[in-house]
């Protein structure tokens, strides 16, 4: 009640000052006062009501018609008050949802995080950055005695559904240890899981590979995933690493083909998500050749520095606004 009285008094003061001087300062004070009203959650119909009360005080000889007209205004303002309070409550709820998403995103990070393995014969660099809060790209490394397996996946679709789907992929892969050595079989099994469990309008592309650290061969298979690059140091050339195969989840009986690459010292396997190649700059989509050029420019650095540099350059080209999740992995054979 006290706050209310205070506000009426203050309103009366401000209005009287304005009526006496009619200057901009008084109007400016009125504008600032409205901020205070909003802070105090005074609704529009209350403001009108205060105005009426103050007018009644200031001009006791107001005509009945004018009073009635103000009553009409009051009735009209009720609707605004209605909408205003709904807006307040929706805003509170939005804040709650945002903080829940925040929690979910950090949970996703801890669930899906994959340690980058260290082996003497390989230099590995990884950069994975979500466009929004939740990452729809996924990568995973598993280190065995004589091999390292690597998976890069991208969910067609973004945000929370994609992130939930990712968790499923991770646990499905964890439960297929026997297939880890055979990339094409791993994809076939994963495809069945996805086909059975994921909504038909959600698709997953994946590239899965196994690096044999004894013989330096990379065996891989792909499910509709953005082709990577293979760098051959001997000829100083980059080539596309195509891996034919349907995206996961389309047909239960999809078969995948296994490919292999022999790596010499200095050779590189470059895996990426389409967020890398679909960077949109002011000049349009970035070309795969431009990515290659960026990698070439930084090739002399350690693998982690290469992926970091490529990301920073692409981020800059896109004016620091990522439109798609970004994942870039480089495996470089050491001497």
């Amino acid at each position: 009640m006290n706050d209310r009285d205070f506000i009426i008094d203050r309103y009366k003061d401000l209005l009287t000052t304005y009526l006496n001087g009619k200057n901009e300062t008084a109007l400016y004070k009125g504008q600032q006062f409205s901020r205070k009203l909003i802070e105090q959650q005074i609704s529009p119909e209350d403001v009108v009501s205060h105005h009426i009360n103050v007018l009644n005080d200031l001009f006791p000889d107001m005509t009945e018609e004018m009073k009635d007209a103000f009553d009409f205004l009051l009735e009209v303002m009720i609707g605004y008050g209605f909408a205003y309070r709904e807006h307040q409550s929706l805003r509170t709820r939005q804040r709650q949802l945002e903080s829940e998403i925040e929690v979910a995103a950090s949970m996703q990070q801890t669930l899906l995080i994959s340690d980058v393995p260290t082996v003497d014969s390989l230099d590995i660099g990884v950069k994975s950055v979500p466009a929004k809060k939740m990452n729809g790209d996924y990568f995973n490394f598993v280190k065995d005695d004589k091999s390292i397996s690597v998976a890069v996946a991208d969910i067609i679709g973004k945000g929370i559904p994609a992130a939930l789907c990712m968790s499923m992929i991770k646990y499905a892969m964890d439960s297929l240890p026997e297939q880890r050595m055979q990339p094409n079989l791993l994809l076939e099994n994963l495809n069945r899981v996805v086909e059975q469990n994921v909504h038909p309008n959600m698709f997953i592309t994946m590239l899965y590979g196994l690096y044999d650290t004894d013989v330096h061969k990379f065996y891989y298979a792909g499910a509709g995933h953005e082709p990577g690059f293979f760098y051959k140091a001997a000829t100083d050339e980059f080539e596309d690493m195509f891996a034919k195969g349907l995206v996961l989840g389309v047909s239960r009986t999809t078969k995948y083909k296994e490919y292999e690459k022999q790596l010499g010292p200095g050779d590189m396997i470059i895996l990426l998500s389409d967020g890398v190649t679909e960077c949109r700059t002011s000049k349009g989509f970035i070309e795969r050749e431009e990515i290659v050029a960026l990698i070439r420019e930084n090739m002399h650095k350690p693998a982690q520095e290469i992926v970091d540099s490529v990301f920073h350059e692409l981020e800059r080209l896109q004016e620091f606004e990522l439109r798609d999740d970004f994942t870039l992995i480089i495996l470089k054979r050491m001497v």
Binding site: F82, E86, S89, L90, R93
Partner: peptide
């Protein structure tokens, strides 16, 4: 809040409650 079908005042029952 936000669930409206009447298209009238807009806030429906939560609005009445308030």
């Amino acid at each position: 809040d936000g669930y409206t079908t009447s298209g009238g005042l807009g806030a429906g029952l939560p609005g009445v409650k308030r």
